[in-house]
Design a protein around this nucleic acid. Structure first.
Lengths: 221, 221
DNA sequence: CTCTTGATTAACCGTACGGTCAAACCATCT
DNA sequence: AGATGGTTTGACCGTACGGTTAATCAAGAG
């Protein structure tokens, strides 16, 4: 759509990367820490080291920029969930693996979940937009198909009598809840448990050990 | 602090209740659906059927009003958690009871969790404020004391060998995660599972049956 | 009745904010 | 060198928003 002259050069002139990318990164930071409504175009421009008008040049207006960032952040938070449902590994391997990878990723972006959930609650229509975007990222991974595949795997184990009956919906909801919520409520948990950032990291580390066992144990018949 | 003339009369003149209360209720609605930064003082005034200047008369400015509402909403979302830790009942009774009551309450205010988590992530200092307020509501229910009491109860059961070892922190975090998250992510869950509001209510109803068993099962040694 | 006092309003103010525009910039091509 | 076209900027605009003020209203006290 928009041709980037800097892309042709090996060493870009600008401080780092081309302007559009710097704007996206700056907007990412600002939107996540202030929320869409609380973010200021000027603050994003400053953070990107760029004139405010340039934001409107690349992204027509604030709401388009906000949409782009929301998709980026929410995609980052939720895309990994697909791994659970799509992989063919047995639950006993899959669950610990996904929990470990997920907690690790979230620990790197601890404020993303709070931002995403806040935005979702103020703009419910973004729920639909988000799963459309996720479907576009991973070919043919419609939510319905994903849930059906997971349900088949669960049903087989249920028939074997090796896990208790559970629907794929409840299974996924539980798994995601246990992983994401502690980050979304991080400031509250830190206050309740009297933790600083290092203490919270330790709490998450402990969680990485405890959660797989807790979850698999819950499935045991 | 501020004397209310209408309070003296048996039948208040105003449409319903005194102005301060109507403002609080209106602010509650507006802040929850728009978020603090997205809420407009004018919209709150309209919703309360009152002049905008009156908001500044009762609450000096927007941020004080926002603080009041946040405490109210967040208190409503989290105060019930205390019941788990403070009650003396056995886990097998306590857990299903708290899950049932909690899901029922949240189903009545489904957008509160998203609002609270969003606000927490943009104003982390409110975590501390919130637990102070919760401590004020329930006499001598400091988080530390609550966690210690719960830990004693858990330790006894662990020593008996009737549940697996778990810290009070992880126990509470898991319980709260499983209850609150589905509401905070309601728009997303509805999109993924192709549910309307009635379908979501049914999903929560199913959850009320499934969750106690899931949770207690996870504790089983 | 007047005086006082809290409650309520209409009108207003300053500015912060999202958005626009014409000019300047700069690499590339002829 | 000049022309071209995407990129970047400073200056500007309209308004929506939070907040203030002076006036009005209602009701009790004297």
């Amino acid at each position: 759509m928009v041709k980037k002259s800097a892309a042709r050069k090996a060493a870009p002139i600008q401080p780092d990367g081309d302007a559009e990318q710097r704007i996206l990164d700056a907007a990412h930071k600002v939107f996540v820490r202030r929320g869409t409504a609380g973010a200021r175009m000027q603050e994003i421009a400053d953070e990107a080291g760029v004139n405010k008008a340039l934001l409107h040049y690349y992204f027509r207006n604030k709401s388009r920029l906000a949409d782009a960032i929301f998709q980026r952040v929410a995609g980052g938070v939720f895309s990994r969930i697909m791994d659970v449902a799509l992989s063919d590994a047995e639950l006993e391997e899959k669950v610990p693996h996904i929990i470990g990878a997920y907690l690790e990723q979230l620990a790197r972006t601890p404020y993303a979940p709070g931002y995403v959930l806040g935005e979702l609650s103020h703009h419910p229509e973004r729920g639909k937009q988000l799963i459309d975007a996720l479907g576009r990222m991973r070919e043919g991974a419609s939510p319905r198909a994903v849930l059906e595949k997971l349900q088949r795997q669960l049903d087989q184990r249920i028939a074997e009598g090796t896990i208790k009956p559970i629907s794929a919906q409840q299974f996924l909801t539980n798994l995601v809840s246990l992983c994401i919520f502690p980050f979304a409520a991080k400031p509250l948990l830190c206050a309740v448990m009297e933790l600083d950032d290092a203490g919270f990291a330790a709490f998450i580390d402990e969680r990485r050990r405890v959660l797989p066992e807790f979850f698999l144990n819950a499935l045991r018949p």
